[in-house]
C-alpha cells in the first residue's frame, strides 16, 4: 500500500457537504477521518503532523468558497472570524484526536503479540525501548 493512501483520509471531513447535521460535520467526520489516518499511519511522526494534515480539507473548502465569490468570502472571514476559528480548530482538534486514537488502537492490536515476544527477549545491541 502506498504511503500516500493515508492522506486520502484527510478528505473525509468533506463528506459534510452531503450531511446536514452540524455535529456530524464539525466533530464526527474529522474524527472518522483522523481515525482512518491514524490507522494507516506508519509512525509517530505521522501523528505529530496530523494537525497540519487536517488543514488539507480546510484548504479545499477555502478554495471552494473563494472560487464561488472571493469578495463575499473575505467579508465572511472579516465579519465572522470566530466562526472561522471555531471551524478550523474543531477540524484540527478532532482529526488529530482521531489520528491519535486510530494509531494507538492499531498499535495495541497489531503489535501486541510481537511486543509480548520482544518484551520476553533480551535487548539486542543498539535497540532501545
Amino acid at each position: 500500500m502506498s504511503k500516500w493512501v493515508k492522506y486520502t483520509a484527510a478528505l473525509i471531513p468533506l463528506l459534510g457537504a452531503a450531511t446536514p447535521i452540524h455535529l456530524v460535520n464539525v466533530v464526527i467526520w474529522p474524527l472518522v477521518g483522523g481515525l482512518l489516518y491514524g490507522w494507516l499511519s506508519e509512525g509517530r511522526r505521522d501523528i505529530a503532523t496530523s494537525p497540519v494534515v487536517a488543514l488539507t480539507p480546510v484548504l479545499v473548502v477555502t478554495l471552494y468558497y473563494m472560487s464561488l465569490n472571493f469578495t463575499r468570502f473575505l467579508r465572511y472571514v472579516e465579519m465572522l472570524p470566530t466562526a472561522v476559528i471555531l471551524w478550523i480548530t474543531s477540524w484540527m482538534l478532532f482529526f488529530s484526536l482521531g489520528a491519535m486514537v486510530g494509531y494507538v488502537y492499531k498499535k495495541s492490536r497489531g503489535n501486541s503479540p510481537a511486543r509480548t515476544r520482544r518484551e520476553a527477549a533480551p535487548l539486542q545491541s543498539g535497540e532501545t525501548h
Binding site: 459534510g16 460535520n25 464539525v26 468558497y65 468570502f73 465572511y76 470566530t82 466562526a83 471551524w87 480548530t89
Partner: peptide, 16 residues
C-alpha cells in the same frame, strides 16, 4: 457547533 459547520452553517451564505 452550527457556527463552526462550514457546509450548513453561516459559511454557506458565501454562495448567493
Amino acid at each position: 457547533v452550527r457556527l463552526a459547520d462550514p457546509f450548513h452553517g453561516p459559511m454557506k451564505a458565501i454562495y448567493r
